[in-house]
Each structure stands twice: as structure tokens, then as C-alpha cells.
Design a protein around this nucleic acid. Structure first.
Length: 181
DNA sequence: TGCACGATCTCG
DNA sequence: GAGATCGTGCAT
């Protein structure tokens, strides 16, 4: 952190805002992972998706409060992680206020695109479920003061959610990153 | 207790 | 374009 100029760790007030505000705001921020062997990985976040409330049929919380979705009902700043297709861990960040389930899926990092590839490369698995980004010693996010521009589009892989939710423009991509993907 | 189904990726 | 592979939620 000390050799990352112009940046500081994001606090809980950042994550406690509505997911539709936090998801695009995470673009351009730096995700930092401290590995057990002492190595540090830093990546700019380039693509996110918002999942918002029990009424959002694409959001896992649409099934209600269960063991899996429990963490999404907390106030923002926690990690929600789950297994997809039997082999890939998806990294999500819980946002918003207590009792209103929502989360941001981290889909892309600079030079590391793909939600499954991100967790594989960063060594993130179920043990990170419920991790607090504000206090964790192995993963956190830093602010970058540079302003960013972004585009929005439809979320990926949620055909089952129905037209209304499928067509919400809740996927956000860093504009500068388009040419790199 | 069993079953169908993914917020995906890699290989052919 | 298909297969890998398993936790979860919902139906028995």
C-alpha cells in the first residue's frame, strides 16, 4: 500500500451506498491481494455487474435469505463468493444497507479478464466467503483519484431471469479498457 | 435422498 | 459447439 501513490483503502461508507452507485464507482479502483507467501498482486478493476434485491430475478437473493445468500443481507463491504458450473468461484462485493441484499460481481481486471480466471489466478475460494474488505489482511480495494469514464450494457449469463431483469443495463465496463480486451 | 441447473472456461 | 463438475435449492 505504501508504494501505491495517490491511493487509500476504501472504507465501509463507500460500500454502503446503493449497488447501482457502487458498481460503476469500482471501475478504475485497485484490487489488492496479499498471498500467503508474501507476494502482492494489484489489479485495476475494469468490469463489474450489479445484482440488486430480492425482486431482481438474476440476483441469488431472489430465492430469499438462505445460507448461501445470507452475507448479501449485511451492510456493504463483505465478500460474497459462490461456486458456478462446479468449478469456478465468483467474486462478489456486498453493497448497500443491512437487510437489503445486493452485490457487485467482479467480471474483469486489467490484463485478467473473466470472473472464473480472476479467482483462479488470485487464489480466491470459499474461504473468502464473508471476508471484510475494510479489515482483511489478504484482500482489499484502494481508491484511485483519477476520474474514469465507463460504458454500460446487459448482464451476462442470466437468460433465466426474464426480459425485464435480463435487459437492465447493469454491467459496467471501463472505457479505456475496451481496446485491451 | 435425489435431481436439474447454473453470474464459466478451455479445448476440439 | 460441447464437456467438465459440484453446491444449492426445491421437489420427493
Amino acid at each position: 500500500m505504501k508504494n501505491l501513490p495517490n491511493s487509500e483503502r476504501l472504507e465501509s461508507d463507500f460500500f454502503s451506498k446503493d449497488v447501482l452507485e457502487v458498481a460503476p464507482a469500482l471501475l478504475g479502483k485497485t484490487l489488492i491481494r496479499l498471498f500467503p507467501d508474501g507476494r502482492t498482486a494489484k489489479f485495476i478493476i475494469t468490469e463489474t455487474e450489479a445484482y440488486r434485491g430480492e425482486e431482481d430475478l438474476a440476483c441469488h437473493a431472489s430465492k430469499g435469505r438462505t445460507n448461501r445468500t445470507e452475507i448479501m443481507y449485511h451492510n456493504g463491504g463483505y465478500i460474497y463468493i459462490y461456486l458456478i458450473y462446479g468449478m469456478y468461484w465468483m467474486l462478489n462485493i456486498v453493497t448497500g444497507k443491512e437487510g437489503y441484499p445486493q452485490a457487485v460481481l467482479i467480471r474483469g481486471l486489467e490484463n485478467l479478464y473473466g470472473p472464473g480466471k480472476i479467482t483462479k489466478f488470485l487464489g480466491i475460494d470459499k474461504s473468502f466467503y464473508g471476508e471484510n474488505l475494510v479489515t482483511s489482511k489478504r484482500i482489499y480495494i484502494c481508491n484511485n483519484s483519477n476520474p474514469v469514464t465507463y460504458n454500460s450494457g446487459c448482464r451476462i449469463g442470466i437468460d433465466y431471469a426474464g426480459d425485464i431483469w435480463k435487459n437492465k443495463p447493469w454491467r459496467f465496463t471501463l472505457e479505456e479498457n475496451k481496446k485491451k480486451i
